[in-house]
Design a protein around this nucleic acid. Sequence first.
DNA 1: TTTCTTATTGACCAACTGGTCAATAGCGCG
DNA 2: CGCGCTATTGACCAGTTGGTCAATAAGAAA
Lengths: 220, 220
Amino acid sequence: MPARQRRIRGSRDAEAARAAILDAAIAEFTAKGLAGARMEAIAQAAGVAKGLAFHHFGSKDGLWAAALAEIYRRLRVGQDEAALDALGPVEGMRRLVTDTFRLFRDHPEIVALMNEENLHRGRHLRAAPEVRALYNPLFGAMERLLAEGRRQGVFRAEAEVTLLYVALSGLGYFYCANRWTLSAAFAGDLFRPERIADYERLISEMVVAHLCADVRRQEM
Amino acid sequence: MPARQRRIRGSRDAEAARAAILDAAIAEFTAKGLAGARMEAIAQAAGVAKGLAFHHFGSKDGLWAAALAEIYRRLRVGQDEAALDALGPVEGMRRLVTDTFRLFRDHPEIVALMNEENLHRGRHLRAAPEVRALYNPLFGAMERLLAEGRRQGVFRAEAEVTLLYVALSGLGYFYCANRWTLSAAFAGDLFRPERIADYERLISEMVVAHLCADVRRQEM
DNA sequence: TTTCTTATTGACCAACTGGTCAATAGCGCG
DNA sequence: CGCGCTATTGACCAGTTGGTCAATAAGAAA
């Protein structure tokens, strides 16, 4: 068997160099944003010449687009929709909320790049139509949870999946994206483990409570 | 009576020029971010020489800090906590959710600047301790709503105000902050009026359902 | 080996950008 | 009126930055 993998045409290991540049770019973009990032700094962190980054990615924008695609790949693999079905509707939905929260917590680069991409009105993302398909399996799993919940009679509220997903993501996203301004504004580090645990409990209860709630609640 | 206001020492109207620069800066920062913004573009949009911006704000960072302070001022005046008490616990809380959502929807500059400030780990905000006090009246109003709700027996869940506020804000924030990537990823413009109305209903129900829910819900 | 393709480098550049400064022009004050 | 203070300008600058390019190295193909 060949030692590792078929080497790409050219020199030592083009694939590895490309990956190193991409990793360094994600780190730099996360810390400085698109406009604030420096190609020289990225190349240096990757241990290659600056020209090589342009050789592999064409331009700063090209590198950004590649970084963004990689981010969405990580987002997809972080959400394990297969595991949800086995948990049943209530626990499955709760798990989806906490997993999404954890994903944003553990991957600041996802949050940072999504923010920056929205600053540019999703220009680079619109050019990547494959991203849309990533959400299909997740939405499918959510549909199944909702249907099963209604069948069992525990879920009484109607819910549209995409809006529900937006709400559920937002609960986790904001906490992570605005970590610094929130901490500065209200005092107290939000990322202390017990605060995180409190919040995780709050938001999963919130989603479940809504799904289980009778649509006609007592009017005060 | 003097025509308008006492003019400041110096030439024509320093205050007006300062305000024009600040407005232009907020617009430019919103569109391009801190690193992407150009001092020359800001000055041109304000109709003044670039040097004047430095004269009034010292540096790009100084201008950023001033813009950020102005943003938080707008955030405060957009939340009318006095009106909440009159609505009673359920409707008051619902109103708080929808008002916060509307605030982020109508003021993209708040969302954009908060995002960028978090990229810099809240460095500029920590230097502005007056921001902390802005939240006190809001938190006070929330506390009163919660207490009244518990007294009436409609709110059965325990809730800590700051975490509840984070959750409630996140529901509206994410929808606006990620408008472009969400639209690109799932197809369909999120800002069509009926989608907004659907979402508004969803998130206010979500918060209220949680507060009203019995902590011990039926386990599936 | 020779050749062809491609990865990789380091020097180089033209454009840009935050910031400075000397000069000027209004305005209030004595 | 003349003095002093400050807003305002436009020219200027030095450091930076995305991007280019000719030269080189190194594997694959023949």
